[in-house]
Every structure is written in structure tokens, then in C-alpha cells.
Nucleic acid binder design. Structure first.
Lengths: 137, 137
DNA sequence: AATTATCCTACCAATGTTATAGGATTTATA
DNA sequence: TATAAATCCTATAACATTGGTAGGATAATT
């Protein structure tokens, strides 16, 4: 299991946008600058977050990104699924994948595990991540 | 995030061994047969479980595999780490990976997430997986 | 019209996944 | 003591995923 670069960068982009004081939003190139991510690579990150409907902007010159909802209404699972639609356990995903799936204790476990993991990711909100201060106390 | 084939096969091999009534243990080739996994590929699965100390056998002809501990003392995390030593979030693994790590809310979150996930995998025991009967009630 | 900034498509090197193949080694037993 | 059973060990390889780069098209502001 690995949390990949897109998801981690996506999280940082979301935090960056959420933290912005500017009512006009944040420019992609400024996120790239703040977060030290290549503008071109950030292209695909932003596109995914936008497609998922977590952020929005207007087009053309001067278009800053803003969150579409309150940070309290955005979970880590929301951000995660902007990049990966699900948590992958091949034998769960397609029933035909394995012909013993109708009676497989292992598969039963993975189904339960996946549910628990999604719950774990869903309970944490962007607002909590932003306001947690672990370093000053 | 993905649960890969080795981990899934490893789990099934462990269940197979745990379920065996034979006091001599289970032959690798029989696990391959029961679980429909190629004998050769199973080689590497068994090797990893053995290296981790979860199963043991004697050498040569007639050497069946047995668990080294009670199924109640074996967690999913034990099995998981036979194949992957950790859950990977690159920016956590090496501190030098990212020079903003000393003040990164995102990184703070992933550290917490990883801890929670290991806890989730650690609380489930092989005995529970074997004895859960989800299909008959 | 020029500029800013995103949007879109294609490409690519490195790595990880999922195996297969061939033979060496070890030990029980006939 | 052969011989067969069974694992142990090393190499190879096709394929998919990851983590980007590159170039230009498009849209809106000034």
C-alpha cells in the first residue's frame, strides 16, 4: 500500500487553497511556487480536484482557485477519490476475478478492511488538518 | 492504495495452513492445489512468510508447513509485513525527502493516518478471519 | 492584439507487479 | 544408498503504474 505523489500533492494543493486569505482565490502558478511542485505536473493535480468538484475557478487571466465547500465539509476521502476512485483489492473489485469468491474468508476480510479504511479516510476533514497545530504545543 | 497479489495469496496460504487438521502440517504443493496458485509463484509467498517466522517446516520429503504460533496471536499486520515492511508514504519515510517536512500539515496528517492504518491491521487476528462465518447467518 | 493562465494531449524513463523457468539442495524411505 | 519428494534459490520477462516532461490550444483579461 502506498500513498502516491498525486494524492499527497493534491492534499497540499487543497490545504494551500483553504489557507488563502485572498478572496480572489489562489493561482495555480502560486500553488506551484508555494508547494515547490512543477507547474506542468500540478496541471494534472488541479484538473483532478476540479473534475471532482472540490475546487473551482473562472477561466483565463487572473482566475484564482477557491474551494467549492467549507473545509469542514471536505474529507480526506473526497480528496483521495479525486485521484483514485477506490481502494483496490482486485479480488473484491470484480466478482469473476476469482472463482472461489463465494466462499473465501480472505475476501470477506478484505471487504471489511476496505470498508473500515474508507471510514477512516472519511472521518477526517480538511478543516481539522489545517487547524491542528502539532508543533507549537 | 492497493492490496497486491502477494499479500492476498499470503493471507490465503496462512488460512489454509491454520485450517489444516493434519498434525504433520500442509505441503506447499497442497496449498498450491487448494488455492489454485502456481507452485512456483507460491514459492516466493511461502518464503516470505517463513522468513517472517510465521510458519515453519522441516526440510526434504514429507515436510509440511505449520503455524509457529496460535492463530489468535497472528495479526493481519504480521502477514502484511511479511511482504511489505511498512505502509509507504514517501514524505514520511525519509525526513530529507521534502524540505518543508518540519512544518507540513499534510505530512502531519499522513503520519497520523499511517498509525491508524497499522492499528486497524493489527487489531484483526487470523483466528477471527477463520472463524467468522458471514455466509451462513 | 497581447498577455496571462489554464486546458489538453502525447510521450517517456524508471520502477513495481505478477509471474515463469531451471536447476540446486535437502531429507525420508524403499 | 539410490531415488524420489519437496523445498530452496536465482534469473528473466511481460506488463502496468508512477512520476513526471513537452508543446501547443484555448479562454479571458487588459
Amino acid at each position: 500500500m502506498k500513498i502516491n505523489t498525486k494524492i499527497r500533492y493534491g492534499m497540499r494543493a487543497m490545504i494551500d487553497i483553504a489557507n488563502s486569505q485572498n478572496p480572489e482565490g489562489v493561482l495555480q502558478k502560486d500553488i506551484a511556487l508555494h508547494q515547490d511542485i512543477s507547474l506542468k505536473y500540478l496541471d494534472s493535480i488541479i484538473a483532478a480536484l476540479k473534475l471532482k468538484g472540490l475546487i473551482a475557478n473562472s477561466k483565463g487571466k487572473g482566475s484564482g482557485y477557491k474551494l467549492t465547500r467549507d473545509p469542514n465539509e471536505i474529507t480526506v476521502w473526497d480528496i483521495y477519490t479525486a485521484f483514485e476512485p477506490t481502494i483496490i483489492v482486485d479480488c473484491i473489485e470484480n466478482k469473476e476475478f476469482c472463482n472461489r469468491s463465494c466462499d473465501c474468508k480472505s475476501r470477506d476480510y478484505w471487504i471489511e478492511f476496505k470498508k473500515d479504511l474508507i471510514e477512516l479516510l472519511s472521518k477526517k476533514r480538511l478543516s481539522q488538518i489545517i487547524f491542528d497545530n502539532n508543533h507549537t504545543n
